[in-house]
Amino acid sequence: MFKLFKLNRRTKSEYIFDNLNLLFMLIICFITIYPIWYVLVNSLNDGVDAMQGGIYWWPREFTLENYEAVFANPGILTSFGVTLAKTVVGTLTHVLFTAMVAYAFSRRDLYGRKYYMIFGIITMFFSGGLIPYFLLIRDLGLFDNFLVYIIPTLFNFFHLIIFVSFFRELPTSLEEAAKIDGASDFMIFVKVVLPLSMPVIATIALFQGVYQWNDYFAGVIFVNNPELQPIQTYLYKVVAESSSNQMMMNAPGGITTKTVTSQSIKLATMVVTTLPIMLVYPFLQKYFVKGMLIGSVKG
């Protein structure tokens, strides 16, 4: 018993290592979190006062006028609606379409399945480039079209691999029993496979939902209509511009350029566009880890 107790005691070197490791992780957390905190603090401070610097931990002159100026612009509300719509529709259609294709790939009697997998893996590492992709989008009539956010993102081969790994772990006896009862392949997929696949569906939905919310590139390249641009594209244009005079022109009457600056509006816009997904992400983080482990451990 005494020997066992001594084996469980930490040595001095282990104690030092644990404390240094803890200190290192705290430094990494600080480096990661502080820039977000800095943006939030300065967005809640008077714009002119913030230009003097020296604001690091708390607002020196607290104000919400920066956020009032942001929400006074009807463009940001429209962009929020576009982002919400494309996130919901794009995620639902992506999960359904990718799951259908993955179910076919999981069938070992699929003719040419090995070659399809090879072709799909190649597309994960090589692409045709931006110019051919742009020409394809234009010729398909998706330029300045809401469907440009939906159709090109219907399928992702990496997500297909995750789906296939999960589908192969489902008992084949369930499909055999359903076939005996007269169910077709589509009915088996809808009535048997999908209800049993909620963990992987939640994982892929989270992957795609975060992507759809954060995507700004499609709005920059394929959309010129301001009413179809998502919130991240709106943020990109606000940050990229040298000033935000147009936003301050749309500010409410009580807000003047004496307290609101282009920099303070940029910071407030960054907080508004990133806060929703930041609030949701920590609660759904476990699904990312679970999704990466699906199919990795065999019984």
Rank of each mutant, 00 (worst) to 15 (best):
S262P: 07
V200M: 02
T153K: 01
A251K: 02
F134S: 11
L92W: 04
T83I: 08
G254K: 06
Y236T: 06
I162V: 15
E169T: 15
T93L: 15
T269E: 00
Y133V: 04
S173D: 14
P152F: 04
I122Y: 14
N225A: 07
F126A: 12
L279H: 02
Y133A: 11
S242D: 10
G141D: 09
A202F: 08
R138V: 13
V41P: 02
Y67H: 07
F5K: 14
K266T: 06
G54D: 07
K290H: 12
S127Y: 13
P252W: 01
P252V: 06
I122A: 10
A205H: 00
Y281G: 01
I76V: 13
Y216H: 10
F134C: 08
T32V: 14
I55C: 07
L44K: 03
M292S: 13
V192F: 09
M100I: 11
A177S: 15
K6N: 13
T172A: 13
F119S: 12
T83A: 10
K266R: 15
T261E: 04
F146T: 04
G182D: 09
V223F: 04
Y67C: 06
L228E: 05
G299T: 10
M278K: 02
I221T: 10
M51C: 04
R10G: 06
E241H: 09
G291V: 08
D49M: 07
V70I: 13
Y115V: 13
M247C: 00
L92A: 14
Y149D: 03
A202Q: 00
P199G: 09
N224V: 02
W57Y: 14
E169R: 09
S173F: 10
I277T: 04
K3Q: 13
K6S: 12
P252F: 06
I180E: 13
Y234H: 07
I33S: 12
Y149S: 03
L142E: 08
E65M: 14
F163G: 01
V190N: 14
K286N: 13
P59Q: 09
M187R: 15
T257K: 02
I188V: 15
K86I: 11
I137P: 03
A178S: 13
K191F: 12
I150H: 03
L267F: 08
F222Q: 02
L4V: 08
P199Y: 07
T87K: 00
L160W: 00
W37C: 12
I277V: 14
L84M: 08
L154I: 03
L40V: 15
I201M: 11
N73Y: 04
V95H: 01
M51V: 05
V239Y: 07
Y38V: 01
G299E: 12
K12W: 12
Y116F: 15
M270G: 01
F62T: 14
